[in-house]
């Protein structure tokens, strides 16, 4: 009940004050440069990493990145920069 109210409140704030959603709602911010770089902020940890797949834990659900020749350029507690040939970015809801 309170959680839902909180979410509504956030939604309203985002709409009303024109604040970026990631700041207010604690969502991941994903920046892609073509298909070679993907930069993900606000993740909650690494779940799986192979040269064809990257799975990240988010606040709500997971993020799945598929492609080829992956390498992690940078990994920090809340940020990750992935390099490779990216073909898909998928959200997996819990």
């Amino acid at each position: 009940m309170i959680g839902k109210w909180k979410n509504n409140m956030r939604q309203w704030l985002t709409n009303q004050m024109e604040l970026p959603a990631d700041v207010v709602a604690d969502l991941p911010r994903i920046t892609m440069i073509g298909h070679i770089h993907i930069y993900i902020e606000n993740h909650r940890g690494l779940l799986l990493f192979t040269d064809r797949e990257l799975r990240l834990l988010l606040k709500n659900g997971q993020l799945l990145v598929k492609g080829e020749a992956f390498s992690i350029k940078t990994i920090l507690p809340e940020e990750i920069l992935l390099e490779g040939k990216i073909s898909q970015v998928l959200y997996l809801e819990e």
Binding site: S71, I72, K73, I75, P77
Partner: peptide, 16 residues
Amino acid sequence: LNDFTRRGIYVWNVRR
């Protein structure tokens, strides 16, 4: 790797 980031260990060019 998650443990590394938590400990503040900086790694780069990670390749499986």
